[in-house]
Design a protein around this nucleic acid. Structure first.
Lengths: 134, 134
DNA sequence: ATCAATTGCGTTATGCTATAACGTGTGGCA
DNA sequence: TGCCACACGTTATAGCATAACGCAATTGAT
């Protein structure tokens, strides 16, 4: 499948996330898009749901916010396996990380419990390199 | 330090979590404790904050809920390192998991980014053994 | 003993996050 | 043409969390 064709609302929301410095809450996105005709939260949430489905954005559970996916070159929606996020509590920057070993480890852990994994959330809160070098 | 002396409200909230089948939201706890004099969300949130601080409960970010810590025998507040949670989307059961290898792996990942970790959230959503055996 | 500081508590009000329920418009297609 | 699926817009409501105020109890130093 080629690049998913996005609707106007979906494109606007995705653009907002791409141009943002860090993660945005749904309501922050709403405010940013009022000039483009957005009036209600649902317009944002519906777009976000689709973008999540397409794998174009991620949801950060620990802060009820959303970020654009860091992979610049993916042409189709897909699983890119487990993603871990490093979230700086000072500057808000989010770094996306992938690691086979960790994925394997989690798989083993789940296997021990005979647990069937659907979705894995890994979020590391702390301080990025820039903000640590006070 | 010996077992943290809890206030009345803190004990009530902790008991509610201990007796629950699965994770509870703050408002669900509030409802359960109305007969004990609870009237406002803050009463619950304040107790939850302290219990989190003492390490007696955990917050599940992906579902805005709280569970009692599974360790029965800890006498003091402490870090028990990283905890991963397996959350069954069918029955709501939560399994607490600890794993040195995973912890090490996350540490390496963070290290690569020169990221200083404060708190790590790992939550696996899926289906537990019971609920998989349809 | 007393004063000050700290901590927990109760209450009201408010803000942030997310979805329910309704109806409209449009494009594809049998 | 009639049906279906889907995106959209709007209003209302539900669910999660904290701000700001004041009071009461505790502690602990002087």
């Amino acid at each position: 499948m080629a690049t998913q064709q996005l609707t106007k609302n979906q494109s606007l929301v995705l653009d907002a996330l791409h141009h943002a410095e860090g993660p945005l809450s749904a309501y922050t996105i709403l405010d940013k898009l009022r000039d483009h005709g957005f009036r209600a939260p649902l317009q944002v949430y519906r777009a976000l749901d689709k973008l999540l489905e397409f794998g174009l954005i991620h949801r950060l559970e620990s802060m009820n916010s959303f970020v654009a996916c860091a992979h610049p070159d993916h042409h189709h929606h897909h699983d890119h396996g487990v993603t871990a996020f490093a979230i700086c509590e000072d500057c808000g920057q989010v770094t996306e990380m992938h690691d086979e070993a960790m994925e394997e480890r989690l798989s083993v852990l789940a296997g021990k419990q005979h647990f069937k994994t659907e979705k894995t959330t890994i979020e590391i809160r702390g301080h990025c390199q820039n903000c640590t070098a006070e």
